[in-house]
Amino acid sequence: MKELLRKEMKLPTLIITYLFIGFSFMTMIPGYPILCGVFFVTLGLYHSYANAREAGDIIYSVLLPIAKRHVVKAKYLFVLFIEALSFILMLVLTLLRMTVFSNSSIYLQNALMTANFFYLSVVLIIFSLFNLVFVGGFFKTAYKMGFPFVVYCIVAFVVIGLAEALHHVPGLESLNTIGFENLGLQTALLVVGVLIFVILTTASYKKACVNFENTDL
């Protein structure tokens, strides 16, 4: 598996995928829908999938002395690797906003979503939707990626819109707390995000393995 992950990093992946991890820094932009940064990270992954398809990566991989399901595993592991790096970066920046910058006026006056544990929870939900809708959708045919990506874009922006709107609903203001207020609720929301990520990604991976096994290349 180490070799397959190395193959993913060295052959089909475009540098843009790594550069787009930098969009995690959007976590720090005040007065901006910061969840868009998550979408840009997944857009970087999409570019590498498109490149992989054009470069014959799937056929090359299947011809290697590995089982077909390992091709799927490698693709998912690489996506998880990029998502993990981005999430760690977003986590660090969120903690900075929750501590060092918690009294910064530029963040206090922010009408949009603030960076807190709820934000991180939604980050994980958007990543899990990418894994479910786009990556899982790609492995239905191993070449069609336009339709799954369009569906993912729609779903992702609906989630971003909802997450941005929720804290304006009376009674849900605590979703947008700055610093460590409402820590119990915030932590619970993060745990829910982690669970959704694990469940959706696992389900997507299992379905993708079955679909890919039955795909004619």
């Binding site: 052959l11 089909p12 470069a55 014959g56 990566d57 056929i59 090359y60």
Partner: peptide, 8 residues
Amino acid sequence: TISWYPRK
């Protein structure tokens, strides 16, 4: 008919 990773 196929060449892998044409630009690598």
